[in-house]
């Protein structure tokens, strides 16, 4: 089946170097008035196509045979996206579509008679006053004990603004790690040994950089916040 035509030299008519835009003597080609640049010109395209029109190099067919004889790797599409953050010692995450903004820590203006509970006070985000809550208080988390030295990097506290429909809540977090995309089957079920309040709000566990991140239940969380604040 081999009727190997004798290797013929490809001679490219490199008009783009002679009279085109790459010409040292200035471009004089008439087609340029129509196409502006050589890369829009069909002659240039044609020459590009002809570059591959040459005999196969040694091992070309074998190499492609190897590539095509393997099964195609099917990567599960990364359909889920969460923002991973830390609150004290706990790694948590919320669906990315819920997170409207992440800002630097802002001063919290306390409200009278609202000391240690869920509501921390008011906070000014881009000129608008928002209710600042304590997510840790809702989830029943203890004060964190991890320090920068344990983690081995500098930590910057942030404020997260979450929004759905017309409800907005702001809460401070110890640090934000950013968004993370993953496939649905990366999620695990919640072990029963977790702290009670947190377990209630945790829908799944996500393995991330050898840590277990609790994926918070968006519905339940917003329901509880709205109920507590009304």
């Amino acid at each position: 089946m081999s009727s190997n035509t004798a290797p013929k030299q490809i001679i490219l008519e490199d008009c783009w170097n002679r009279i085109g835009v790459w010409s040292a003597a200035g471009s004089s080609c008439e087609i340029l008035q129509r196409v502006t640049h050589c890369r829009n010109c069909e002659r240039y395209t044609e020459a590009g196509r002809r570059i591959l029109d040459r005999p196969m190099p040694e091992g070309y067919q074998e190499e492609w045979s190897r590539v095509y004889s393997c099964k195609k790797k099917q990567h599960a599409p990364h359909t889920h996206s969460v923002v991973i953050f830390r609150l004290g010692d706990d790694w948590l995450s919320l669906p990315s579509h819920l997170v409207r903004e992440i800002t630097t820590l802002k001063p919290i203006h306390g409200l009278p008679h609202r000391g240690q509970g869920l509501i921390r006070g008011l906070v000014n985000i881009r000129g608008e006053l928002r209710i600042c809550i304590s997510l840790g208080s809702l989830l029943g988390l203890r004060q964190g004990e991890l320090t920068n030295r344990d983690l081995g990097y500098d930590v910057f506290a942030r404020m997260m603004l979450i929004e759905r429909d017309s409800d907005q809540f702001v809460f401070p977090v110890t640090e934000v790690q950013g968004t993370h995309r993953f496939a649905g089957h990366d999620l695990r079920t919640v072990p029963t040994t977790l702290g009670k309040a947190k377990a209630t709000y945790t829908r799944n566990i996500l393995q991330w950089k050898e840590r277990n991140v609790a994926c918070l239940d968006e519905e339940l969380l917003l329901y509880a916040l709205k109920k507590e604040l009304s």
Binding site: M1, S2, S3, N4, T5, R49, L52, D53, P55, M56
Partner: peptide, 17 residues
């Protein structure tokens, strides 16, 4: 199927194209 052989009775050339 070598289409060139089917139509013209000659094998396709062994070019990268």
């Amino acid at each position: 199927i070598d289409l060139r052989h089917l139509v013209q009775g000659q094998d396709c050339n062994r070019h990268m194209t």
